Amino acid sequence: MASGARGKGRPRLIEAAEIDRAIRDAALQLLLEQGEATTMHAVALAAGISRKSLYARYPNKTQLALAVIGELLQGAGALEYDRSGDAEDRLRHYIEAGLEAIAKPQSKALQRLLTLDPDYIAALRSDMLDATRRIFFEPLRMLLSDAQAGGELAIEEVDATARVIIRLIFATSFTDEHDGKSWMTSPEPENYAGFLARLVARGLLAR
């Protein structure tokens, strides 16, 4: 009887995991598309389950959104970029990849969603910091450390330099409150990436 009970229980565990995965996938898609307009009813429909089943797992939309966004942040990997060329080339490639990452529709939708409800930022602060460090900071710190070790750049504070560069990359996503336009005068990311790479690399050339 014991083995029979386990046999019956296993499919239920698998089914529960599949239902939760369907809920989170549906919620993520809807949250990125509709933002705060997303409803629990819409999530249930998209996941193919009843609202009762949804509420049994997530008591409200805030808890569901926190679970979904937290999972998204925790699963994000390090920024991939072209590592060929000299220090300035590598830095430009990194910046271009960073600009591309934050300009993706999914990234912009996530930024809008996080700014709509201060509770999201407060609850997800740790995940956000960890994700930023993993995605942007660690790859850049390695790039700068390698350039320093190879005698290409003279950097007194690698971590501080990396933080400044990342702030300048993220600054491109800031928009004017009145017209919604980016503060950047150039619409071409590669122009900004080239400018920023030259500014940093030539200011840190080994002497």
Rank of each mutant, 00 (worst) to 15 (best):
G9L: 12
P11F: 04
A16H: 08
A17V: 02
E18D: 11
E18A: 15
Q34M: 02
Q34F: 10
A47F: 06
A47E: 04
I49P: 01
K52G: 13
S53M: 05
R57K: 12
R57G: 08
Y58R: 00
Y58I: 07
Q63T: 01
Q63S: 11
A65S: 12
A67F: 04
G77E: 13
A78V: 09
R83L: 02
S84Q: 15
R90F: 04
R92T: 08
Y94H: 00
I95S: 01
A101V: 06
I102T: 12
A103Y: 09
K104R: 14
Q106L: 10
L110D: 04
Q111T: 14
L114Q: 06
L114G: 03
T115S: 13
L116W: 10
L116C: 15
L116I: 09
D117E: 13
D119Q: 15
I121S: 15
D130I: 09
T132Y: 03
R133D: 13
F136S: 08
P139L: 02
M142C: 02
L144C: 04
A149Y: 06
A149E: 11
L153R: 06
I155A: 05
A162N: 00
R163C: 03
R167E: 11
L168K: 03
A171L: 14
F174V: 14
D176W: 07
G180P: 00
S182A: 15
W183L: 12
E190C: 15
N191L: 14
A193Q: 00
L196T: 01
V200L: 07
A201Q: 05
A201S: 15
R202F: 10
L205Q: 11
